[in-house]
């Protein structure tokens, strides 16, 4: 592991990835404890994609995400307390409790509507790219969406438009279908597509397309950085397929904390991965993988890791306390915001 700016960045990635991990572990607990209702989706196992990809963007850029948005929102710097509060439907939540887990959104950070409609994100992002092109300020839009989006017709229309008009859009397809049982076997949906090589789809439209290991934060960052620079110079769009094996907790229809609370000591030799998820701990958990690389820096790095973990746990515990103590919205406010109110426009 090289020292210097590369290493500094790796630590920054790990900080955000761990924040997401502890956040998601808390979400499962809140769901199990009955603090919120309905289906939800966790970003565990995909932190190595969202964090470095989003880190490669600038302030002025736009993003679009999906039902699996928690990681993206946090990666971009949204407040975890407001995120958890939204998941609990509290007035202090990012969307004032109107959206819930599927719609966490932070327009201030450049997010376009967080759509729970499969295919919604990829197509809205092309609109974001259109706006960026009209602005002529070198800004870009990144769509972070699942492989399932390519089952929807609107995705083809959107890719075609982006390709025809050379729009500055980074299509970040997070393919998490590898190893998944899928809906036909009673699990959470996995890809139902005749194409076994999704890259052929954007390629057929002349869109530059690459595949990366979505568990490898450095590889994702490098690929995204290249894609963004192509887009900024009018040579977009670019399609990236980030491959992450299906995390066991997202394999059943309803999420579960299959691999338990992440034990960072597995990265430093302080704990030994065993059991049926051993391979995941050893190879596919992006947080452990990056922590392991950084821990190789020696004793000092090991200390730094455990200090980071302690600070992150505290930050999320505070966020959870804030969310749980937050009030529910006043019922009659349900009628607000159907249209823009002039005063707030």
């Amino acid at each position: 592991m090289p020292k210097g700016p590369g290493e500094k960045r790796q630590w920054q990635f790990l900080e955000r990835m761990l924040l997401i991990r502890r956040f998601e572990e808390t979400v499962v607990k809140m769901a199990t404890d009955g603090h919120f209702r309905g289906h939800y989706h966790l970003y565990i196992g995909q932190e190595g994609t969202g964090v470095p990809a989003i880190a490669a963007l600038k302030r002025k850029d736009f993003l679009a995400t999906t039902h699996r948005n928690h990681g993206h929102i946090l990666a971009r710097g949204a407040d975890p307390g407001a995120g958890l509060a939204e998941i609990l439907g509290r007035a202090t939540g990012l969307n004032g409790g109107r959206g819930g887990t599927i719609h966490l959104c932070e327009p201030k950070l450049g997010f376009l509507s967080t759509s729970g409609v499969v295919g919604g994100c990829i197509s809205l992002a092309v609109g974001g790219g259109y706006a960026c092109a009209q602005r002529r300020d070198g800004s870009v839009t990144m769509a972070l969406f699942g492989d399932g989006a390519l089952e929807e017709g609107v995705s083809y229309e959107a890719l075609n438009i982006a390709a025809l008009w050379h729009l500055p859009v980074i299509f970040m397809c997070e393919n998490n279908s590898a190893g998944a049982m899928g809906m036909a076997k009673g699990g959470y949906p996995s890809l139902v597509h005749a194409s076994k090589n999704l890259l052929l789809i954007p390629k057929s439209m002349g869109i530059k397309s690459v595949r990366v290991d979505g568990v490898d934060a450095a590889a994702v960052h490098a690929a995204t950085t290249r894609a963004i620079s192509l887009c900024r110079s009018g040579r977009g769009p670019v399609f990236i397929e980030a491959m992450t094996p299906r995390w066991a907790g997202s394999d059943p229809l309803w999420p579960e904390l299959a691999t338990g609370i992440t034990d960072l000591r597995m990265a430093t030799g302080g704990a030994v991965p065993t059991g049926k998820h051993q391979a995941w701990f050893e190879h596919y958990d992006p947080v452990l993988r990056l922590a392991r690389e950084l821990a190789n820096g020696g004793e000092e790095s090991v200390h730094r890791l455990s200090a980071l973990d302690e600070a992150t746990r505290k930050r999320i515990a505070d966020a959870a306390d804030f969310a749980l103590a937050s009030p529910l919205p006043a019922p009659e406010t349900a009628l607000n915001h159907v249209f823009v109110q002039e005063a707030s426009a």
């Binding site: 529910l328 006043a330 019922p331 349900a334």
Partner: peptide, 13 residues
């Protein structure tokens, strides 16, 4: 109105 997530809002509509 669209349907809001939070329980008291949802109940209201």
């Amino acid at each position: 109105t669209p349907v809001p997530f939070s329980l008291p809002l949802e109940n209201f509509v």
